[in-house]
Design a protein around this nucleic acid. Sequence first.
RNA 1: GCGUGAGUAGCUCAGCAGGAUAGAGCGUCCCUCUCCUAAAGGGAAGGUCGCGGGUUCGAAUCCCGCCUCGCGCACCA
Length: 552
Amino acid sequence: MTPEELSAAIATCLQDAIASGELSVPAEAVPRQLRVDRPKSRDHGDWATSIALQLAKPAGLPPRKIAEALSSRLAGIAGVAKVDIAGPGFLNITLDASAAGGLAQVIVQAGVAFGTNDSMAGRKINLEFVSANPTGPIHLGGTRWAAVGDSLARIFQSQGGDVTREYYFNDHGNQIDRFARSLLASAMGLPAPEDGYGGVYIEDIKDRVLAVEPAILDLAEAEAQERFRAVGVDLMFGDIKESLHNFGVSFDVFFHEDSLHQDGAVEALLEQLKKSDNLYFHDGAWWLKSTDYGDDKDRVVIKSDGNAAYIAGDIGYFANKRARGFDLNIIMLGADHHGYVARLKAAAAALGDDPDTIEVMIGQMVNLLKDGAPLRMSKRAGNVVTLEDLVDIVGTDAARYSLARFSSDSNIDIDLDVLTKRSNENPVFYVQYAHARTAAVARNAAAAGVDRSGFDAGALNHPTESELLAVLGQYPGVLAQSAQFREPHRVARHLEVIAGAYHRWYDACRVAPVGDEEITDLNRTRLWLNDAVGQVLANGLGLLGVSAPDRM
RNA sequence: GCGUGAGUAGCUCAGCAGGAUAGAGCGUCCCUCUCCUAAAGGGAAGGUCGCGGGUUCGAAUCCCGCCUCGCGCACCA
């Protein structure tokens, strides 16, 4: 029995109590989702609910009275062995060992489907992340989003969501010109332009452009710069796509900002905004009245030089996504872009659309520590640490896991020295090891002749088994919450909890018989549990894009 | 100044649609392999949950104020 199933059963009991007139609670006071928690102390049963305390005020009754009204009904739920009223009115529920143990079989039979759900079915979700400019390699901030964004996409899919992973290439505007000029300067042996880019990767791209077009420097300067732009940006695109692919992230759409300008989409939308009186002309530029829609200040959409400002592309891009049918557009941005949120939503509102179809996730910075001191990074100076650097140092699994296990809201410090040690300070090893251990136990069980031909749910009654079953049962709920709050780190953290419970169980309970002991249903049932743990760990690691090795 | 994120154990961080004695990993100190992977497990030490008010039967969690730190506040993208 999972906590969700128990919760649903308790909700039914509550409805019964209300219907029978025993309890009088205003409908709006009844929580839609009735929570059951795992108590910290084993003396408080397997699961507990504080529903009686929550309903005391709206029902106008002492909480213990409510608890009493509910406890006899809860005791009647199939699989519930005992219900106690404790403290101010907690309801502590103890399950039959057989009801709790049945979960092991349920999980094995569900396989990869265990934990999945259809709560997001029918939702067409566009998940835009990384979107690093094609003027350099993916830096650490982008790497964090690659790990978090791809995991979130997988989690949405596990909940039935229809997800499109999308990468927006800002290949329009003068940063690309700066990139081209930087390549040209490098090829001519000049220092990087004042507003340009430097560093080894510029040298590298320059060399590769020259390899493709050896005569490029014989062209007139403007023409040479254009060739550097065209070929250089292409090479950069290729590098970025390859890095992401090697990182296990497959984007469905690489969207080029330039295409919005090429096909006239942006121009048409700006005309529409002019007609709807959402744009005005001032100081030689066209401004969006974004303050009418909650922004701090109005924003220039067409600069006085006649060129489209950056937000013009965003307006076109949003309209494009909506035209493609996405009802939820999640955009992941770094903390240095959080000022965008208001203007993006304002732009949506100005178009007459629903700003709530846009959700912006802001990820805080990743700081690197080297020799215990913060490492300052600058793309211009060229001392960036890239996705590839990180993968070279710690590998894809550790990189993805260590970035995904933190809340995006917190700044994280990654100590290169620690990660270079490849010690088990990285929890990914702890979780992967637990998975490898389940595989080893299964191999040994098979060699000893233990199979899953028998199952006695009631036999899983050791304290470590009760704990292990409980945390396995929480997995679907953790997944659902992870999707709801867009927080993949909840999955990672719960895997660590499961791994810990598994290691403790392993220490206390054997699957394979010792020596020539007779094989019983206890051995077989424990094999079910062992395999269930392996399944859940593999499912969870899969959602994080991390491998689940059978041997380590 | 305004906006925004953070402040929880020595370190890195969970927990925050309020719940019973605040957690994990690492680090420190003990202990456990004749027994399926000791890359593990058990135990100990270690906390005014930034500070001050408020709401509540109950606050790390919600509200208000303050302090400190990160990030942002362009006709750059």
